[in-house]
Computed example of a mutant assay.
Amino acid sequence: MRIPETDAIKHLCGRRKIYLCHRNADPDAIGSAFALSWLFGGDIGAVGDLSRAAIQLADSIGIAPIIDPDLNSYDLVVLVDTSVSSQIGGAILQRYGVIDHHLDTDLLENAEFYIQREVDSTAQIVWSIIKSSGRAFEIPREVALALLAGMISDTGRFRHASAETFRDVYEILEAGDVDYGEVMEVLSRAPLDFSQRVAVLKAATRARITWKGEWIIACTEVSAFEGSSAMALLDLGADVAFAASSHGGVCRVSGRASFRAAQAGIDLADLMKSIARMHGGSGGGHRGAAAMEVCYPPGRLLAELAEAALDRLKA
């Protein structure tokens, strides 16, 4: 059942609940879960692990999310920043809700309720929930910091931000006792570790390049750090980049697109979702950043993604 932000209080108050974040949870997921926990109470959990930036955020706001929690201990599981089953691994859900800004529908049919709106970050939906509760000007600095970190990170530090995002950021800076510089300092404390730096450099050396007109597509196979590798290829000059890895027969792919490519017609969320479904997998995300999981050879999958990306770009 789809509900508006104003009805969240009816479903989240007075129940033993956990806000469950997706695998490799990012600042948007952790920040949104933390803000919901402050507003309604409840635990914060994540599947598998947290991203390095999310770890820095969690340390800064003083929380320790439960990794792979026992969901049977709760009356309600609230999936935060995800509506794709592959992002929560093999978690078995019974009574659950979804709060997410992606437009995927994989987990919506059996949800007790869901709040889904196409904005730049889940943190914006949570901010709307807080405002509708009448407690916007009570938020502590940690909550403000967490929400801002989510918005900043999910927009690529505002490279893909809408006017609504800037409005929400302004409102939170006004309401919370936090400076923009503090948030950026938290997000900047997550340097690449040695293994990640090696993986990114290997990704660049293994990259296969295709182009049409002035559009450049870069694809690479890695053992880990798919998102960082795809982003590095974008920074090196690609318009669209895909990085794939294989884990126990499952191929994971992260894709990144430049603002210019997104403006020209690339929607990586739609592209990766459609190709994933062709091979019995799942995918989704944003126009400029998305991911997918399928049981399919990485090399062949990357070739299909590159061809599809070029077809969707205007030469």
Rank of each mutant, 00 (worst) to 15 (best):
Arg2Gln: 13
Glu5Ile: 10
Leu12Arg: 08
Cys21Phe: 02
Cys21Leu: 01
Ala29Val: 04
Ala29Lys: 07
Ile30Tyr: 03
Ser37Leu: 03
Asp43Val: 01
Val47Arg: 10
Asp49Ser: 15
Asp49Tyr: 12
Leu50Ile: 00
Leu57Arg: 06
Ser60Met: 04
Pro65Tyr: 04
Asp75Met: 05
Val80Lys: 04
Asp81Gln: 03
Ser83Ala: 11
Val84Pro: 08
Ser85Trp: 00
Ser85Phe: 03
Ser86Lys: 14
Ile88Val: 09
Gly90Met: 09
Leu103Pro: 05
Asp104Tyr: 01
Asp104Arg: 12
Thr105Asp: 14
Leu107Asp: 04
Leu108Glu: 01
Gln116Arg: 04
Arg117Thr: 08
Asp120Ala: 08
Ala123Pro: 01
Ser128Glu: 15
Ser132Val: 05
Arg135Cys: 10
Arg135Leu: 06
Leu147Ala: 06
Gly150Trp: 02
Arg157Ser: 15
Asp168Thr: 11
Glu171Cys: 06
Asp179Ile: 11
Gly181Ala: 13
Met184Ile: 15
Ala190Asn: 00
Leu192Asn: 11
Gln196His: 08
Arg197Asn: 12
Ala199His: 00
Val200Asp: 03
Leu201Ser: 13
Leu201Cys: 09
Ala203Pro: 09
Thr205Pro: 09
Ser223Asp: 15
Ala224Met: 12
Phe225Asp: 15
Ser229Lys: 05
Asp235Val: 13
Ala244Asn: 04
Ala244Phe: 03
Ser245Trp: 03
Ser254Thr: 05
Arg256Asp: 09
Ala257Met: 06
Ala257Tyr: 07
Ala264Gln: 10
Asp267Lys: 12
Leu268Gly: 10
Lys273His: 13
Ser274Trp: 05
Ser274Arg: 14
Arg277Lys: 15
Gly281Val: 04
Gly283Arg: 05
Arg287Ala: 14
Gly288Ala: 13
Gly288Phe: 14
Val294Pro: 02
Leu301Trp: 02
Ala303Lys: 13
Glu307Thr: 11
Glu307Ser: 12
